[in-house]
Nucleic acid binder design. Structure first.
Lengths: 221, 221
DNA sequence: ACATACTTGCTAAACAGCAAGCATGCAACT
DNA sequence: AGTTGCATGCTTGCTGTTTAGCAAGTATGT
């Protein structure tokens, strides 16, 4: 017993640690990031319901129980993940793409932001939409967040359209609210088909055609 | 013991049966129909994964075990349900709505068929889309069917568009394939938002705006 | 020394599916 | 026609598996 303890002490003092010595807050942050990353991957592959906490922990390089230790519950992990993804899309992708544009230019910029995300980080996009579609029924926790997200998305889009009409670049007879719903929906529909059957659906040409259609149907003559 | 037996006999002869006497094949058919109906409802409410076989049996007015008795497995029940719904949509709704139309008229007729279904049988529509979205990831059994369904849907739509171009009613610069994907996707996207948040999304005005947009962007000038 | 990160053993709940049993429909034979 | 024996519809008790979450333990940082 005593011998074992002294051995342990010796080991922990003599063997150098693999990475740089991390403070505890740093370790926590790193672990949480790794877990979110692993969750993202697994959700993209199999959806959220089919992903067990054990699988997440192990994919991240830890054991079965980490998630419950770090996040408390599956629901809490999910909340964190969703907040993370919503924030990233809103602030890292959409906002910079818009840059004060309105009307047709804003819509086209949004389309191209989606296109870019699809090429640069397909796993994240896939996970995002997997959650979106799964959030419809199965996960009660998720629904209100998605409802809210879409309301804000439509409101924002409607605002951009209304401003375009004001500025005279969009046809005045457009129903801004309905058109915003249609616009947001176009992404959901395109992504649905792309996720379902990537081989048969060419996302780029879908987005191109959407741009062509918008130019033609919305831009003031 | 003897007394009990004679009682049973007496009872089974004297009490008249509730409904009309059914032959065994009729009973079977009725039970299967009831189970499919119950599954439809529950899928519309909570999705497929969250619906247990016990719940289906009880909703249909039977016991826990009926589904396994009648269909063998959950997968088999699902297959039956999907076949039923696909067939119904294709032959009872879409085909009669088209009636040999092509081009803009065909597209508009399709939109109005969806509108009609949404008003006349919202539960079935809801279940249909719940399965569609759930089929993305969770249910391996389902995916190939949905892939195939959408390929056929796009091919058919592309054909209608190509014919419209030939006939001169649609602009010749349209990419029929991409436009078909966009068109099919528009329903997925609109329905997604409607299912998620029926209060904030006015499906009718969305569909109206879609018609307006198609008239404007696709009809040859 | 104490706190914090992480692990492992365990429990309880949910669920699909099976097998044995009960009850009703049906057909053959007297 | 009535009885008898079998098939079919349906139920109930059970099993194995999966999973979230907890509690007690170990190791690492401060």
């Amino acid at each position: 017993m005593q011998l074992e303890e002294s051995e342990k002490l010796a080991v922990s003092e003599e063997i150098p640690r693999a990475g740089p010595r991390l403070s505890q807050p740093e370790r926590t942050a790193r672990t949480r990031r790794r877990l979110l990353e692993a969750t993202l991957e697994l959700v993209a592959e199999r959806g959220y319901e089919r992903t067990s906490l054990a699988a997440i922990g192990e994919r991240a390089g830890y054991s079965r129980g980490v998630v419950n230790h770090c996040f408390g519950s599956k629901a809490a992990l999910l909340a964190e993940l969703v907040a993370f993804m919503f924030g990233r899309w809103d602030h890292a992708q959409l906002r910079p793409a818009l840059e004060g544009r309105v009307g047709v230019e804003a819509l086209v910029a949004t389309i191209n932001a989606v296109r870019r995300q699809a090429h640069e980080n397909p796993v994240e996009l896939r996970a995002f939409y997997a959650l979106l579609f799964e959030g419809l029924g199965p996960i009660p926790e998720l629904r209100p967040r998605f409802v809210d997200f879409h309301r804000r998305l439509r409101a924002e889009t409607a605002r951009l359209i209304a401003k375009g009409i004001e500025a005279g670049s969009l046809r005045p007879e457009i129903d801004a609210e309905a058109q915003a719903g249609l616009f947001v929906g176009a992404f959901r529909g395109a992504m649905y088909q792309w996720l379902l059957d990537p081989e048969a659906v060419d996302l780029d040409s879908l987005l191109d055609e959407q741009i062509r259609m918008i130019e033609c149907a919305l831009r003031a003559p």
